[in-house]
């Protein structure tokens, strides 16, 4: 179980979620921010500060949003 950042972040990217994440598991990518699913403790702090509701829990994800979890896993594999 982890949190995933989805498409609305791409037009916003102000990084409020980074400020509140207690384990620093959110990083800036090329076109959006990503949450490291290995480190995220599911505290939910980021969810309440995102102005565009881009952050979802993985079990709430729509099928077409699953690619964002894969992209996050890829992103942290690379970095």
């Amino acid at each position: 179980m982890a949190f995933v950042i989805t498409a609305p972040c791409q037009d916003e990217m102000a990084g409020e979620c980074v400020e509140v994440c207690p384990v620093d598991c959110i990083e800036k990518g090329q076109d959006q921010y990503y949450i490291d699913p290995e480190i995220c403790i599911n505290c939910g702090a980021c969810l309440s500060v995102c102005p565009v509701s881009a952050i979802v829990e993985d079990f709430d994800m729509m099928p077409d949003e699953e690619k964002y979890l894969k992209a996050a896993e890829e992103f942290f594999k690379r970095s």
Partner: peptide, 10 residues
């Protein structure tokens, strides 16, 4: 409970 309340907006 704490993590559920974390999800509440300001």
């Amino acid at each position: 409970a704490l993590f559920r309340l974390n999800r509440v907006s300001m």
